[in-house]
Design a binder for these strands. Sequence first.
DNA 1: TGGGCTGAGGGTATTCAGTACCCTCAGCCC
DNA 2: GGGCTGAGGGTACTGAATACCCTCAGCCCA
Lengths: 245, 245
Amino acid sequence: MSEARDPLPDMTSAQPKPPMREALVDAAFELFLARGYEQTTIDDIVTLAGVGRRSFFRYFPSKEDVVFPDHERCLADMTEFLAASADTDDPVARVCDAARLVLRMYAEKPAFSVQRYGLTRQVPGLRTYEVSVVWKYERTLAEYLRVRFADRPDGKLRANVLAASVVAAHNHALRDWLRAGGEGDPTEAVDQALSFVRQTWSPDSDGPGGGHAGAESEDVVVVITKRSTPMWRVVREVESSLGEN
Amino acid sequence: MSEARDPLPDMTSAQPKPPMREALVDAAFELFLARGYEQTTIDDIVTLAGVGRRSFFRYFPSKEDVVFPDHERCLADMTEFLAASADTDDPVARVCDAARLVLRMYAEKPAFSVQRYGLTRQVPGLRTYEVSVVWKYERTLAEYLRVRFADRPDGKLRANVLAASVVAAHNHALRDWLRAGGEGDPTEAVDQALSFVRQTWSPDSDGPGGGHAGAESEDVVVVITKRSTPMWRVVREVESSLGEN
DNA sequence: TGGGCTGAGGGTATTCAGTACCCTCAGCCC
DNA sequence: GGGCTGAGGGTACTGAATACCCTCAGCCCA
C-alpha cells in the first residue's frame, strides 16, 4: 500500500560492503547480548573481531554507532527519496512513503532489530542515541514539507507538526511490532497508523478543524439511515456506497 | 490564555536553592560562551567556580546537564501537573497547558535561554542532549494521554501522535522566539501554535478525516465520510455515534 | 624495474569525562 | 565527651575518543 508515485525504490545503493564493518557489528552484538552494552569495551570488540582498536573508529565514529549501523545509509536514502519527488506528488503521501523506508530497514532484519530494541530499552545512552537518530529523520521530513508548504500560511508550523505526527505514528506501529518479537509483517500496522495521520492532515483539509466534508466533492459519501437500523445493515449500506473500497 | 482548570500553578517548588549549583552554572556558561563548550573542561569550570572537581558531579551527573540546569525540575513539575488533573478536564487542553510550563521556564530567563540556544545550535552533543530532554517531555505527555484515551480504539496511537504534535508545535513557536533573540512575549505565538494542533485534534472530532457523524433528528443518523476512508473506520464512527447518543 | 603515491589497517600515547573510594570537618543529637 | 550525618574535597582509575606515526599492499608511471 504505497501512496505516491515512484514508491519505495530499491535504494540498496549496492555499496562494496566492507566485510570488516560487518565483522565489527557481529562481534559487538555478540558481546553486548552476552554481557551487556556498558560491560563491553571497544577493546573487547576489536579483540573478538581480530582487528586493531584503531580500525573500530575508522568505521564507527562512536561506540553507539555500531548499534545502529545502517541508519546513516537509511537517512541518506530518505533524503534522496524526498529530493526525487515531483511537485505533483502529494507531500503527505510522500513523507509517509519516506517513513516506510525506515520501516523496511527494520523489517529486513527482524532478529537484529528486536535484539537492538532490547538493548535500547535497557541502556539509557542508547535510547538517547536512538532518539537523536529519530530526530534526524523528523528533521528531514520537516525540511521537505517546509519547502512544499512554503506558500501556505503557517506552512512551517504545519510542516513541523506533520513531520512529528508521521514519525510518531510510524514509531508507534514499529515498536508494537518490535515488542511482539518481530513476528509477521509490520507493514499493515504502519499503514494503518500512517493513514490515521494522513486523513487528519490531508492536503485538502487546508486548515485545522477544516476537515469537515464539503458535500459537493465527489470524494464524499453521505449515508442517511434510521437509528434503529441494525449495524450490519448500516455496514452493508456504507459498503455498497463505497463500492470497490 | 490558559485552557484548563487549575492552570499553570506556581510550581516554583521553593527549594533551598544551593548557591553552589548556581555558581557552577554561571562559571560554566561564562567559559562556554568565551571559548566554546568542547574547549572547556570540567576542571576549568570548577577552578573558576573555586570548588572541587568532585562537587561538580555532585550537582550535575554529566557535563551536558549543566547546560540544562532546570529541565529536571520542569519535568517533575509537568508530571505533577498532569497527575493533578481531574477526569473532567479536557485532555488536549491539559497537555497544552503542560507544554506551557516548559515555555514559561524558557521565558523566565530570556537571556539565558537565548545563550543556551546558541550553544545547542553549534554543539552536536548538546543538540542530542536537548532532543533527549524533549523526548522525555513528549513521553510524559503521551503517557498521560494514553491513560485518558484508554477507552478509545487506537487510544495509544492517538496519544502518541497528539503528544508529538503538541511538542512540535510548542517547539516551533519557542524556537522562533529564541531565534528572534528572546525579545517580547512568546506566549501568544505558542498559544497560536497550540491552537493549531488543538483544533485538529479536539476531542469532539473523534475520528481522523473529520468524518462527521451526527444525529440530525432523533431517528435519523447522517454519516458523511470520504470515499477513501477505510471501512473499519466508518464502522467505528457509526458505532460510536449510535452508541452514546 | 625502481620509485613514489595512496589507502587500508595497526599501534601507542594522550586527553578528558565519569566513577569509586576515602578523607576532612562542621553541626548535632545522645 | 563520643558518635553520627552530610556537605565538600582529593586522588586514582577506567574507558571512550583523538592524534600521530608506522607498515604494507597495490598501483601508476617514468
